[in-house]
């Protein structure tokens, strides 16, 4: 909601204002945390789809557990990892509502792996916004399933950081889910630059379209920063996404019902695993 006393200059058009699907509550997220950007993109897409009044958010456990304070939407807060199951229950009761989960990498790719896999197996018409910042943020910076090899966290400490022999390898959710027929749209974007953010927004829109047109589950993985957990400045953290995360988590579309033919061919050429 725009402040009352603010006056838009005469003879101008709006380029950007806070989307209606966001409240005006200032978030608790750390300075520079890209959760704020992800929230904004989802809210912009919901506004553009005119879906705010029929949307239901399922919030996870993690930094974004308080999402219900920031989205101007009906919300159910789900137990850790269970958002896709809660969303399944909601969508089955209200098939014409726009139901989506917003989850971090601990919530979705650690404790909640079975739930996201089987929501995709069932082809639930829900949309999943998956924030991959390679760490457990809310609890103070522990290793997550997406933590990179060698990356230091409070549970993958110096000198080795995450060691494959002891803690295995980063999980690539998009590649995994793209093998499931029930997944209609699977894409990975990044919030590390305006250009990537614009592309991420297109992915988010498509993931909602997958739901609205009933094709199946739509999921967008967003490479995000946790500058406090990574012990970097916000600006450096975004650079770290490009330099360190993208090589492990390649960006792109892994499954797209709408352009299955064309896209699959392009993906095949570029060596990215086709859906």
């Amino acid at each position: 909601m725009v402040d009352k006393e603010f006056e838009r200059p005469k003879g101008t058009e709006i380029v950007y204002e806070r989307p209606k699907s966001l409240t005006d509550v200032v978030t608790h997220y750390c300075p520079g945390c890209t959760h704020g950007i992800a929230h904004r993109l989802v809210a912009e897409v919901l506004d553009e789809l005119d879906a705010r009044e029929r949307a239901v958010l399922v919030a996870p456990v993690g930094c974004s557990v308080l999402a219900y304070n920031y989205f101007n939407l009906d919300t159910q807060q789900a137990a850790h990892g269970r958002a896709p199951a809660v969303a399944t229950g909601i969508k089955r009761v209200l098939p014409d509502r726009v139901v989506f989960t917003y989850q971090g990498d601990g919530d979705l790719a650690a404790i909640g792996t079975a739930e996201i896999v089987h929501a995709a197996v069932r082809g639930e018409r829900i949309t999943v916004i998956f924030i991959n910042n390679a760490i457990f943020g809310m609890t103070g910076g522990q290793m997550a399933p997406t933590t990179l090899l060698g990356q230091e966290t409070t549970t993958s400490p110096k000198p080795t950081g995450r060691l494959a022999e002891r803690a295995g390898y980063p999980i690539r959710v998009c590649e995994m889910l793209s093998q499931l027929d029930g997944a209609a749209y699977v894409a990975r974007g990044s919030l590390s630059s305006p250009q990537n953010i614009a592309k991420a927004k297109r992915h988010i829109r498509k993931a909602f379209q997958a739901q609205l047109e009933g094709h199946g589950l739509g999921i967008v993985e967003l490479l995000s920063s946790c500058n406090v957990g990574w012990k970097m400045s916000p600006v450096d953290a975004l650079k770290w996404i490009d330099s360190h995360m993208v090589p492990v988590f390649p960006l792109g579309v892994f499954k797209d019902w709408s352009a299955a033919g064309v896209e699959a061919a392009r993906l095949a050429d570029s060596g990215v695993a086709a859906g």
């Binding site: 159910q76 199951a85 229950g89 009761v93």
Partner: peptide, 26 residues
């Protein structure tokens, strides 16, 4: 009505949570 065989009993109770929260008898 809707029947779902969930991936686990744990997922099932969370589906009840969602459906109940959406206003249904679940």
């Amino acid at each position: 009505g809707t029947f779902i065989q969930a991936e686990s009993e744990l997922a099932a109770i969370n589906m009840v949570y969602g459906a109940a929260g959406a206003g249904a008898r679940a």
